[in-house]
Design a protein around this nucleic acid. Sequence first.
DNA 1: CTGAAAGCGCTTACAG
DNA 2: CTGAAAGCGCTTACAG
Lengths: 349, 349
Amino acid sequence: MRSVYNTPVKKKRRSTRFSTASVISDVADRAGVSTATVSRVINSPELVADATAERVRRAMDELDYRPNLFAKGLITRSTGVLGVILPDFHGEFYGALLQAADAEARRAGYNLIVASDARPDSADAAQSLPVHFLDGVIAFVPFPNDALVRSIGDLSISAVLIDAQQELEGTDRSSIDNTSCATAAVRHLVERTDADDCFHVGGPETNYDSIDRAEAFRAVLRERGASGSDDRVASGEFSIDWGYRWALDTLTTRTGRPTAVFAGNDDIAVGVLNAARQLGVACPDRLRIVGFDGSRVSAASSPKLSTVQVPLAEIGTKAVQMCVRHIADPTINPSHAVVPTRLAVHASS
Amino acid sequence: MRSVYNTPVKKKRRSTRFSTASVISDVADRAGVSTATVSRVINSPELVADATAERVRRAMDELDYRPNLFAKGLITRSTGVLGVILPDFHGEFYGALLQAADAEARRAGYNLIVASDARPDSADAAQSLPVHFLDGVIAFVPFPNDALVRSIGDLSISAVLIDAQQELEGTDRSSIDNTSCATAAVRHLVERTDADDCFHVGGPETNYDSIDRAEAFRAVLRERGASGSDDRVASGEFSIDWGYRWALDTLTTRTGRPTAVFAGNDDIAVGVLNAARQLGVACPDRLRIVGFDGSRVSAASSPKLSTVQVPLAEIGTKAVQMCVRHIADPTINPSHAVVPTRLAVHASS
DNA sequence: CTGAAAGCGCTTACAG
DNA sequence: CTGAAAGCGCTTACAG
């Protein structure tokens, strides 16, 4: 029945049904109640009489009713969805982390979605990410990425930044402890190898992890009194191929050949290992190698790779916990978790 | 100015501003136009006078206006977001695929999000997934999963099912060609190894890929006249650990020892390789091994693993293309893409 | 080229 | 315990 206040009555101007999916008024009609009551059996069942609720539930079942999350979100400003933003999907690095984050999110009553921040051009990150839908966001920022950090700030939703060097007001952060374990790894190498013959084959030059690991390498070499160490540090990418190319080049052409390599990650280390094998350079006898990450490739390599174990699952779990905590109470002070790593010495060094 | 039709005027009952974010009416006020005009400069700028549009754009800038996607989605039923549903996030298998899918989605003007279908209990999949937000969905269904398939059907959005054996009306499908290459791989093994000494160490028993690969193995053995071959087929999981345990057990305790192994995937193969090395069983001299996937661990192993290359990037790209095509024209007949694989023989066999 | 107004499908304070 | 109604922030047919 149209209210008199809505006169003059215009004719309906477009079909309002987009699909056959049923909406709340269908359920209300079928159960013989108002939409308010249907909404209540969904959101506050304790406010509804049992018999009524039962009738509504049956109607919902029969109509296969699913609330429209657009409409719901427009009111409640909440979707129950947490987002993880990755720089890209490549590699296996994020698998274990996402698995743990997903589990923790479910435990807390949220769903987790993952998106990448890889942008083709200069498009606005916040524009390109379905970030309005999120109750909270966990962003990996392993490279300087002002656009991303700024747009997360603009959104003013609960956020935790992983690996970021930037601070963002009111935002939790989580980083892995690169320095201690990189230091331990390099010390382990110089224990039995002349510091002058130790090399660092790192990842991308602008990557925060790369920077920290390279700096730890340089520091240990300085502490051992090695001569100007910067020509023993190479930057490339986190890939098997880069390690392979570096080793093929360096192991064949250099006069002062490396006898120990601290790799920026396990992939690089495996590349070095492969090249050494191909060149007949025995590992660890003539070349000792340590990787970083504790990834599955490190377990698959032979000799088994010494590496720095990064507790990916723990990082994922913690990040979700921080994010959920912040959603529940936005006033608490943001914290900065530093996740410890552990040097695991195996056969390659 | 309240319309007279809305009398009696009630007092405003709750604060309608949730945050400081500006909304379309703020922009309209500032630019001195109606919200309709603001909406038009966003969605159909050709309908707006240049000078007006310029004023509106300036107002949008100054207010840092971002359209509320809930409100927009409620009207347009479209978000520009494609979703990929994975059984879980574990492993590296999906990395290259997602990377390619993401790139293709951007190319087509969509954003890609990824979610997992791992459900703690019997919760409704469609309930637990933010699937109402999606313009299209690409779902991996490597196991029987009626709940997922049914709820995708109920949603009646453009969908492509990967690896699924189930058909779903009006839905595109994409599968890899397990049979040809599994057959080629096993034939390659029995070429120089007695069929009776060939074993298959497979993945999960209910996994569709596992089933196809095991069946191809059995078929080749039958074709070579091997005696009852089912005791040479073991099912486990797609993990290094399972391959390792199987090999440790089988290589030490069996009287008729395997001299060739067709593994369900590369991880399993690497596990077998590790166990063989540990037991002093030389590969490929005394044990020939072939994996499946062409993953990074296969490249890292030594001897380098023979494997069946699965073109992950191509699968991802194709799936997005199919999905986008179906969104653009829902009436076209669904197709079933079978992605070819390729046997790559390396040092392990 | 522009605006007034209806409508998308929900939720919830208010009033029984 | 339940319903009528306003409102969330947009889009778009209609009428200038």
